[in-house]
């Protein structure tokens, strides 16, 4: 038996499957990204917005046998199922919670094992793997890989979420509603554009009008960006100040690393403070030119 590979079991994620002849047409009409791109060798990042263009849910979508699998937030999966059901109407598409059958894993790129994953070097590259799916994070290839595997699979050994959280926060990758505020944060404030989560040339989907308008008007005024704090990160919701004025707030964090929703003009300028501690903005390459 081969040595198990060190990986991070993502306890806060769940798996939904969508099956049936109308699945893709149904999803194409409501999601931000083009579902027709998903295939055995291609995974996708996408979101479901409110009609006003605010974030509701984000997820990864892969193809597995005759199903589309959603890697979504576990704590909000029932709300997601309900929202999908609301839009389904007469479409022949079955939505099923498969969390009892599958578990979700991340293999941070720092733990890279080229013999297994080297062929999936590019963001979104996917393949069938151990009766499940393995794919390179479609937002950022530097994040490494994610896998949806049957519960009984033994190829991975769980090393806890810490390595994943550290890498995620250093690269500014968000984690669902720990970072965006449902029904408040705009799609582009949640970086859906730079994370390959929007197809700007597809037809109508829920929230398309505002998302397109934000894009073509130019500047997005605030975004979720990675920061480093001088000391342990204060709790989610703590204000970030510049010259005594609030310019953003802390979202998810681990130790001294966090994601913050920050006004873009505050990125250049005087010192940032949160709860009396100095805050430094990290600059992953996707933040260049925004």
């Amino acid at each position: 038996m081969p040595t198990p590979i060190a990986a991070c079991k993502l306890h806060n994620r769940a798996v939904l499957s969508i099956t049936g002849p109308d699945s893709r047409d149904f999803l194409q009409g409501i999601l931000t990204n083009t579902i027709f791109a998903v295939g055995p060798d291609r995974a996708l990042y996408a979101a479901l917005l409110t009609p006003q263009g605010k974030m509701l849910f984000d997820f990864f979508i892969t193809a597995h046998q005759d199903a589309l699998l959603f890697d979504c937030e576990s704590s909000r999966k029932t709300d997601l199922i309900r929202r999908l059901m609301m839009y389904r109407l007469r479409a022949k598409a079955e939505i099923t919670d498969r969390s009892d059958d599958f578990s979700l894993w991340a293999i941070p790129r720092t733990e890279r094992d080229d013999s297994v994953f080297g062929d999936l070097a590019k963001a979104g590259a996917a393949k069938a793997f151990e009766d499940g799916v393995l794919y390179c994070d479609p937002r950022d290839q530097g994040m490494g890989w994610r896998a949806i595997l049957p519960q009984k699979a033994t190829i991975f050994t769980d090393q806890g979420m810490e390595p994943y959280e550290s890498l995620r926060l250093s690269r500014g990758m968000t984690d669902g509603s720990r970072d965006f505020v449902p029904e408040k944060t705009l799609a582009l404030e949640a970086n859906l554009d730079v994370f390959n989560g929007v197809d700007f040339s597809k037809g109508c989907y829920v929230g398309q009008e505002l998302t397109a308008r934000t894009k073509h008007r130019g500047k997005v005024r605030k975004r979720l960006v990675p920061i480093e704090i001088d000391g342990d990160a204060p709790q989610s919701g703590t204000a970030i100040e510049q010259d005594g004025k609030t310019v953003g707030d802390i979202r998810s964090s681990h130790k001294n690393a966090a994601i913050a929703l920050l006004r873009m003009e505050a990125l250049e300028g005087p010192a940032l403070m949160a709860d009396g501690k100095a805050v430094t903005v990290r600059h992953p390459s996707w933040l260049d030119g925004l």
């Binding site: 149904f26 009409g29 009609p51 109407l89 007469r90 479409a91 989907y205 829920v206 398309q208």
Partner: peptide, 12 residues
């Protein structure tokens, strides 16, 4: 006359 899910505002 029928309604389906999808479109900018959610239903078409």
């Amino acid at each position: 006359v029928s309604v389906s899910g999808g479109g900018c505002s959610g239903f078409s």
